[in-house]
Structures are given as structure tokens and as C-alpha cells.
């Protein structure tokens, strides 16, 4: 702000953003030690760079280490070899600054708290005043209006997932990690949630990593799709997705879209023989 050398700050800022690296995973191995000294290699030399404001989807067969990659990025696990940096710092620092949003695969809602309090939890933990308008907005966004007072046990699996997405978005995090957030939803609700997520992402440009099994979903949402191999998980390919946004029904019906879906699906299939 004190700098007077910059002529057009409005233009330089996005340019600077576009080059900043949000997530950087370098040759990360993850080896779990099981009982009786047995070892299980979940990840092998995973390289992944995510630029600030970028939306990256990870697809891969079940058990290939997608959740593990997210856990590394969230600072919940450390790589056995290699490094993980988030905005140039150790991953857990983002969490300490309350700048991280995670929607876990098993949604992790507090059973005693209402939908509303579950979504407001990040504010309370961060010691900030709950922004009621934003919480209301998020409840509406995930289609849970009228369920504000419901407790998790009164919700369906898909509704719980949506609460967990809303909670992850609550503080407008700098990094959003979504682990199969729409897994329990029917196709129609799923596409609607995809559209909502695309809209929010368009508005807030939150750097996002989405793990999904749904190739269409990955292509609707992501700038790049990372395809992982079977265990031990490696990055097999990274595909750029250049369809213009918003990607509506016209996009998903286009032959280019179908071509890419087929290509990625066959890459997933090819993985089967890859596991050791």
C-alpha cells in the first residue's frame, strides 16, 4: 500500500495471485506402519502444485491414497519422505490461523450440536463473532433451510455431508479441502451442489482440492484433474480442463466434454493392473 511504484494495483494483484503457489507437495511418500511392524505404502513420490485460486480435482481408485494426500495438505499427517508446503509454510500453520476449511469424508459433525451450531463452530473456535448472515446464507446454499435446529442424527447422510461442506466454507478459508463431499447425494442434488460450489468458487476464488470418484463432477468443477494410480498412489496424469465457465448443461453435453470423460475413465480403468 505504501508502494507508489505500482501503476495499476488492480491489475498486478490478480497476476501476483496467479503465480503464488498455494499447495506444494514434493516427492511425498507415505508409509503407514501397521501392527507387527508390517508396512503399507499409501503414496509414492507424489508431486502436486496448486496455484492460489485454482481448483484441482483428484480422482483415483478406492484406497489409492486420495484422502491421505488431503490429510498431508491439512497437516493432519506428515509425509514419510518428501515435503509438503502450504503458502510456503508448514501445513499446520494454516489451521492455526483459522484459514483452512476441510470437509471430511466421514463429515465429523458434533452430535449434540444443531445444524446451525455445527456450521458456526469455526467462528467459535477462531474466537470470532458468529456472522449470522453468512451462516444463514450457507444453510440456504446447501439446501438445509428449515433444518437449522435439527441435530445430526435427525439428518440423512447426504444432509450431513452438506452441513460439513457449509462448515468448511464458513470462514471463507484460503484453502478448501473436500473429500468426496457429494458421495452420498443423488445425481440431481449432486449436480445442483456442484453448480453451487462452482458459483461460490467463482465468487470467492478459494483455492480448492476436491477428491471425487465422479469424473463428470471433476470436469464440471476443476481447472485441472489429477489422476492417481492404484496403491501405492502416484500421480499418473494431470489434465487441464479448459471449458469456459460457468459450465452448464451445454458444456456437459458437448462432445469435447464426453471425450474427456471417456479419456479419464479409461485412465482410471488402466490403473487396475498398476498396483503392486
Amino acid at each position: 500500500m505504501s508502494s507508489t511504484a505500482t501503476l495499476t494495483p488492480m491489475e498486478t494483484k490478480p497476476a501476483e495471485h496467479a503465480t503464488r503457489t498455494a499447495v506444494s507437495v514434493n516427492r511425498a511418500d507415505k508409509i503407514f506402519t501397521l501392527s507387527r511392524g508390517k508396512k503399507l505404502q499409501a503414496l509414492a513420490e507424489v508431486d502436486l502444485e496448486v496455484r492460489e485460486g485454482e481448483f484441482v480435482a483428484i480422482i483415483g481408485p478406492s484406497g489409492c491414497g486420495k484422502s491421505t494426500v488431503l490429510r498431508l495438505a491439512a497437516g493432519l499427517d506428515r509425509p514419510t519422505n518428501g515435503t509438503v508446503e502450504i503458502f510456503g509454510a508448514a501445513p499446520h500453520e494454516l489451521a492455526t490461523q483459522h484459514r483452512l476449511g476441510v470437509a471430511f469424508q466421514e463429515h465429523a459433525l458434533l452430535p449434540w450440536a444443531s445444524v446451525r451450531s455445527n456450521i458456526a463452530l469455526p467462528y467459535k473456535v477462531a474466537g470470532r463473532k458468529v456472522d449470522d448472515a453468512r451462516v444463514d446464507g450457507l444453510i440456504e446454499l446447501v439446501g438445509l433451510k428449515g433444518f437449522e435446529k435439527a441435530r445430526p442424527k435427525q439428518l440423512s447422510g447426504g444432509m450431513r455431508q452438506r452441513v460439513s461442506i457449509a462448515r468448511a466454507l464458513a470462514l471463507s478459508p484460503d484453502l478448501l479441502l473436500l473429500d468426496e463431499p457429494f458421495g452420498a447425494l443423488d445425481a440431481v442434488t449432486r449436480r445442483r451442489m456442484n453448480a453451487e460450489l462452482a458459483r461460490i468458487w467463482g465468487e470467492e476464488k478459494i483455492t480448492t482440492i476436491l477428491v471425487t470418484h465422479d469424473v463428470d463432477e471433476a470436469l464440471i468443477l476443476a481447472d485441472r484433474v489429477v489422476v492417481m494410480t492404484g496403491r501405492p498412489g502416484r500421480v499418473r496424469t494431470i489434465k487441464n480442463v479448459d471449458f469456459p465457465r460457468p459450465r452448464d448443461a451445454a458444456t456437459t453435453r458437448s462432445p469435447e466434454f464426453h471425450e474427456l470423460v471417456d479419456e479419464l475413465t479409461s485412465l482410471l480403468d488402466a490403473n487396475d493392473g498398476d498396483a503392486a
Binding site: A74, G75, H92, G101, A108, L110, V125, A126
Partner: peptide
Amino acid sequence: AGRDLFTVLGANKLQVLSRL
């Protein structure tokens, strides 16, 4: 899962105790 959630929310130990 609860511990993980509180970790990524940046909760301190007292918050983990009192809220979880």
C-alpha cells in the same frame, strides 16, 4: 474424526477439552 476436525479448525487444547 472429532480430533481431526478440531485440529484443522486450529483449536487449542482448552477448546478441544471444553467443546469436545
